[in-house]
Every structure is written in C-alpha cells, then in structure tokens.
Nucleic acid binder design. Structure first.
Lengths: 149, 149
DNA sequence: CTCCAACTTGAAGCGAACTTGAGGTCACCC
DNA sequence: GGGTGACCTCAAGTTCGCTTCAAGTTGGAG
C-alpha cells in the first residue's frame, strides 16, 4: 500500500505543501507514478510523525534530518539503527527537560520570595552571580542553543 | 547603577542588536542620556535572562511580552505580580515536560522493539491508530502548537 | 470519453527573530 | 582638545519553516 500526498497529509496532519517542502530538503522520500505524482510508502507516515514530535521539543529540521539520516529510508530500521539514534537524542531530551524544570522551579520559587526583584535570592538573581564568572550568563543556556543567535 | 547596552549585552549574553530589537517591540525599556544613548536599570538584566529562559522552552517573544506585561517595569514586582505570571506559565511548562518525556520514552521503547517499523507496537505506531479516529494524529501534538502552522 | 478534484512545478510571500550596513554621534582616556 | 571605540538610527538582508499563487497535468468516477 502506498499513500498519495493527500492521504499522507490527512493521516499525519501535515499540509501537502509542508510534505513537499520536507522532500525538497531530503527529510522524506517518495516514488513517482508514470504521471509524476508522488507516492509514499507507509513508513513515511511514522517518519513524519516523528519529525513533528521532534520539532515540538525544539529540534530544527536540519537536526532532525541529520538524525534520521542514520536510519535507512528504503529498508525498515533495525534495533541497532534505532539504538544509535535514540542514544544520541536521549541526552538532548534530558537536557531540555532539565532546562524547563529549572525555569518552572525558578518561577515557583519566585512565588514565595518575590524575586527577580530581591538581591538576596541568588537562585533567581543569576545575572550578578554570572558576572562573577564572566559574561554569558551560561547557567540559563547550559548546552547547545535551540535556534538563532 | 545603570548599564550601557554593551554592558547589558556582555552580562546577559544577548547581542546589542537583539537588545535594541527587544526594546523596539516593548519587551524591555531604557532611559536615554543627554547624548541619546541607552541606559538600563539592573532589573533589566534579570528580565533579559528570563526572556532567554522562556525562549528556550519554546515561547515566542510575543507571549513573553504578554506575560511580562503583567509585571511592572518601573517598580519591583510584588509576590502577587509573580504569582499571577507563574501560575499562568506553570501548566504550560508541565505540558512541555510531558511532551518531551513522551518522546523520550517512545525513543527508549524503540530500542527494545525496533519500532517505527513494527506494526505490533501500537505505542509507536501512532499513524495507523490515529487514522481510526480521524485525521490529525493529535496524539503527538496534544495541546497548543508552538509556532507556525 | 469526459470531467473535475487532486495533483504537479516554480517563484514569490510571510512572520519570527534577529543581523548587517551605512552614515553619523557620543563619551571617556590621554 | 583630540582620538577612538562604543554608541545612535533606519533600512535592508538573512534564516527557518512553511504557505500561496499561477499555470498546467493526472487519474479515477461516471
């Protein structure tokens, strides 16, 4: 069974134009009918779903492309394929979770102490502390940046 | 003590051009010297740090602006100010964490079962399941979307 | 065989979040 | 008071992740 672009769009929730765009950057593949229309293999559906999930957590299409490049597009991925991809992302996801938890806790802490205003709250008074160890305020952006800069 | 744009940039790790941009969209404020140069009060440093943290977790500058608008820029924020902001963001952050954990667990599950390829793994075979309850594949994008679309 | 919705391409447009550049001014050190 | 590095404005440019449009083609239902 193969899918038309309309079917893939309906089942993935991703617009046809976006799917064409994904193909143009090498994120997904299609075969063509004699009349030049795209046909997608089902694994593409999972691939697309995965792309959206990864986007949700802040990965760029470039990064996702890189990661998925380690998976075969033609054959079904093996455990080893997955294991490779998974381990490289896991740390990243953990970092992301930690970053959000830190912001959440910071926010919670602020309810109690009224900080972003109190000098005494070092946890929430990062700028001046960071200045002591040089510029960058790296405590808030611990590892790789998400986009831009 | 006030900060020049260069100092604020160095201490926050945010480029001067970005700081000017933030000001242009009303995210931060400055006073001017007689010679028309910007001078920032220290709370601005915390504000900027907060902005970057919030960006890291996927909030747009618009949303951050809205949220911070509930905080006073002139006076120091009170507990009540913080409490308001905090409670409105908390759920959002929780959702974000949950979403990432789901992706992580999905990834972990895949190591064991080789999915994104096995039909038997329903957890990781969302597309076909989603098709049963109509298009959208909403399982992966549970609540509000981050950007675009 | 005809029809029409669904597809095709390529180019242009868009919003977000900045950066870069040109041309000019300011402020602090010697 | 002179020099120079940090600052100013405004406009235009950049990247990402798409969408929209125009003009044409395909393929399946009747």
């Amino acid at each position: 069974m193969v899918l038309t672009i309309g079917e893939l769009s309906a089942r993935s929730g991703v617009a046809p134009s976006a799917l064409r765009y994904y193909e143009s950057i090498g994120l997904i593949e299609s075969v063509r009918t004699t009349g030049n229309q795209r046909r997608y293999a089902q694994p593409t559906l999972r691939r697309v779903a995965f792309v959206r999930a990864a986007q949700q957590v802040g990965l760029s299409l470039d990064e996702i492309t890189d990661a998925l490049r380690t998976l075969p597009q033609g054959r079904t991925p093996t455990k080893a394929d997955w294991s490779r991809l998974s381990s490289s992302w896991r740390q990243r996801l953990e970092d992301q979770i930690e970053r959000i938890e830190r912001l959440r806790d910071r926010l919670d802490g602020c309810i109690g102490c009224g900080c972003l205003s109190l000098k005494t709250c070092t946890l929430n008074n990062p700028g001046d502390e960071a200045a002591l160890r040089g510029p960058g305020a790296a405590f808030l952006e611990p590892t790789g940046r998400r986009r831009g800069r």
